[in-house]
Each structure stands twice: as structure tokens, then as C-alpha cells.
């Protein structure tokens, strides 16, 4: 089966604290922080968007993959915040990593799981022999409406994976997906902010799909929680992540490395790919990893992965997730609102 040849990440360097947002809306910051298991989130700079985050992550992935980018036969960018409604992000990325023009490309959208969907598409194209290498990216600059609960978590970041068969650093053992029509979260065309179904987003949506995805891959691989050294889940907040991990019988030792939301927020399509990258940053040969994404609407993609000997040769070739997390500067709500385009300026029509 196909494997991971290289991976790379990008998280914008600006942060806003939960307290700073709570102050604006008169919320109890401590209660929110405790309830969501969240301290702060990343904020994209005014000149960052899903395309720029994808390019930075892809360039870092290529530093680890060390392949001729012209051998990339497909580029897929999964996001719910593509800069254009019509015009692919993937072509911008392909040109910026010098993979164009002899390749295919497309943008994918499936709420927070479009990044893992992109990985599955690349696995299929590689395993069928149609392409030698594929570039799969999950990246977002998520929007939460001012005053909405999502504003505490919706953040920005992304991760890119070069998928192939030659010179892998980790190998896919299998993948399993669980999908249903569940309108727990959506955004209509032309609307700036998404809507969500409140409590409906928990049990019938996130938990049902993630648990089914995890159990599906256990059955398919004949594994159980104790067979894995690390596990990563989608993480709309810290609370859901920890609860689903415990429900499946994973220990803190297994789930802690991939849990990034308390420090950077929910990076949507970037979340599971970034969590997996944080695990690969510290993984050792023969480590076994399970990753389960979740996208509203709704579905989960689960992966069983084994790390191989080459991992240690590439870990230091590009910035690690921990480097991106520690390199930060705080903004207040006013600067955050300006950077996120929440203000209507004098010169706007």
C-alpha cells in the first residue's frame, strides 16, 4: 500500500486568548476555557489565507520528501475556506511548488475532513499506479461569527502530505470511512459564517461518526486501542477529543501528542492532518498510529499507519508542529477583527 513520503505544516504565528474574546462578549472566560479545554487559538495574518497556508505546508512537506516536484501527479487541497468560490486553490499550490503542469488537481470540500479525503484520493491514485506521487493538503482559515460559540475555537493552519510508494517514512496499513447525511453544521453559498446545530453537533454527529470510524478500522485491521502507540482524532475543541479517546479505551499517553486545539484552536480541515504531523515529529520506527478525522455533514476517515526506519532521517528537515506552536505573538480583539476582515472600513463600497 501507499505511504507517507513527506509531511509539512504551517500554523500562523498570531494568537488570541479565550479571555480576550470572552471580555468582548461578557462571557465567563474560565468556564469556557474549562468547558472546551481551550486556552488560545491561531489567527491568520492579514495576508494569509488557505492558499498561502497550503503552499507553506506543501513546501515543508517537500523538504522532507526530497523528491523532484515534477514527479507529483496530483495535487488536492481540502478546505472549507478556499479563497475563491470558483478557481482552485490547488493550481496555486501546484505552481508554487513547481509541480505543474503535467499533473491533475482539484479542490475538495467536506467541512473538517476534506484534508483526509485528499489523502485517500492520493492513496488510491498511487496504489492503482496512475500517479507516482500525490500531494494532499488539509488547510483552513476558519470563520466563526462574532459572538458565536465557534469564535472561541475557529482558527487557521494546515498540513501537507506527499503520498507515494518509494522512500516512505510511514506506511498506510488500511483506511476506513463512515459517512451519512447529517446537517449538523453548514454554510450556504455567499454566506460569510457557518451555522451549527448546537447540541446536535455532539452525539449524533461528531461522536457517532468518529466512534464508527474508529471501530470500523479496528475491525478491518483486527486491532484494538492497545495496539497503537499514538492516536489522533478531529478536535473541534479539547473536550470532544479527550472524551472520544477515552470512550475507545485510549490512554493520555496515546492521545496527548496529537491534541493541538488547546494551543492553536480548531484548524478545521487542518486539524487531523496537523495532529498526525505532531505525532510523526516525535515518532520512532515501528510506532503504530491511528488517525480518525471528522467532517460535518457528516463523515469520518480512519487510518492505520506504521512508521518505518526512514522517519528519523526526515524529522529535522523542516519546522515541527511544536516550533510553530511556540513561535507566537498575541493580538487583542481589535487587531484580530481587523486581520480577520470583520471590520467595514471607510473606503469599502
Amino acid at each position: 500500500m501507499a505511504g507517507i513520503v513527506g509531511y509539512g505544516v504551517h500554523v500562523p504565528s498570531y494568537r488570541i486568548k479565550v479571555e480576550e474574546i470572552a471580555k468582548v462578549w461578557g462571557d465567563d472566560a474560565k468556564a469556557i476555557s474549562r468547558g472546551l479545554v481551550m486556552q488560545e487559538k491561531s489567527v491568520p495574518g492579514p495576508d494569509e489565507d488557505t492558499a498561502t497556508i497550503s503552499v507553506e505546508a506543501a513546501r515543508n512537506a517537500l523538504k522532507r520528501a526530497m523528491i523532484d516536484p515534477q514527479k507529483i501527479g496530483a495535487v488536492y487541497v481540502g478546505s472549507e475556506s478556499h479563497p475563491y468560490a470558483v478557481k482552485p486553490t490547488a493550481t496555486i499550490v501546484a505552481e508554487a511548488v513547481e509541480a505543474a503542469p503535467e499533473m491533475t488537481a482539484a479542490d475538495l470540500e467536506f467541512a473538517c475532513k476534506a484534508g483526509t479525503a485528499a489523502m485517500q484520493v492520493c492513496m488510491g491514485l498511487v496504489d492503482s499506479g496512475i500517479i507516482e506521487y500525490g500531494l494532499a493538503i488539509g488547510s483552513d482559515t476558519a470563520q466563526g461569527a462574532p459572538g458565536d460559540a465557534l469564535e472561541y475555537t475557529a482558527s487557521a493552519g494546515g498540513a501537507a502530505y506527499v503520498i507515494g510508494k518509494q522512500n516512505t517514512i510511514a506506511d498506510f496499513e488500511g483506511t476506513y470511512s463512515f459517512t451519512s447525511d447529517t446537517p449538523d453544521f453548514y454554510r450556504r453559498e455567499g454566506q460569510p459564517y457557518p451555522k451549527h446545530g448546537g447540541r446536535f453537533t455532539g452525539e449524533p454527529a461528531f461522536f457517532k461518526h468518529v466512534l464508527s470510524g474508529a471501530k470500523g478500522i479496528f475491525d478491518k485491521m483486527g486491532t484494538e486501542a492497545s495496539d497503537y502507540d499514538h492516536v489522533v482524532f478531529h478536535q473541534p475543541n479539547g473536550k470532544f477529543y479527550i472524551r472520544v479517546a477515552k470512550k475507545l479505551g485510549f490512554t493520555e499517553e496515546q492521545y496527548k501528542t496529537g491534541l493541538l486545539t488547546p494551543m492553536i484552536g480548531n484548524t478545521y480541515s487542518g486539524a487531523t492532518p496537523l495532529g498526525l504531523a505532531a505525532v510523526l515529529d516525535i515518532a520512532k520506527p515501528d510506532d503504530r498510529i491511528m488517525a480518525v478525522s471528522y467532517g460535518s455533514g457528516a463523515g469520518s476517515d480512519a487510518f492505520s499507519i506504521t512508521v518505518n526506519d526512514r522517519i528519523e532521517d526526515v524529522q529535522d528537515n523542516a519546522p515541527k508542529v511544536s516550533d510553530m506552536i511556540t513561535k507566537k505573538s498575541y493580538v487583542d480583539y481589535a487587531v484580530y477583527a481587523k486581520y480577520k476582515g470583520k471590520l467595514r472600513m471607510a473606503w469599502m463600497p
Binding site: 495576508d47 494569509e48 489565507d49 492558499a51 498561502t52 503552499v55 507553506e56 479563497p83 496555486i92 508554487a96
Partner: peptide, 19 residues
């Protein structure tokens, strides 16, 4: 780094490039 250079208004093309 790779960044957004400018946007031709709200409905125009977005230019990207080096910073």
C-alpha cells in the same frame, strides 16, 4: 515566505507571491 500580495477589490483576482 508565500503570502497574499493584493486583492483587486472584493470580487477581483487575488495576487500571491514572495514576502
Amino acid at each position: 515566505v508565500f503570502r497574499k500580495i493584493k486583492e483587486e477589490g472584493e470580487d477581483g483576482v487575488i495576487s500571491y507571491g514572495y514576502k
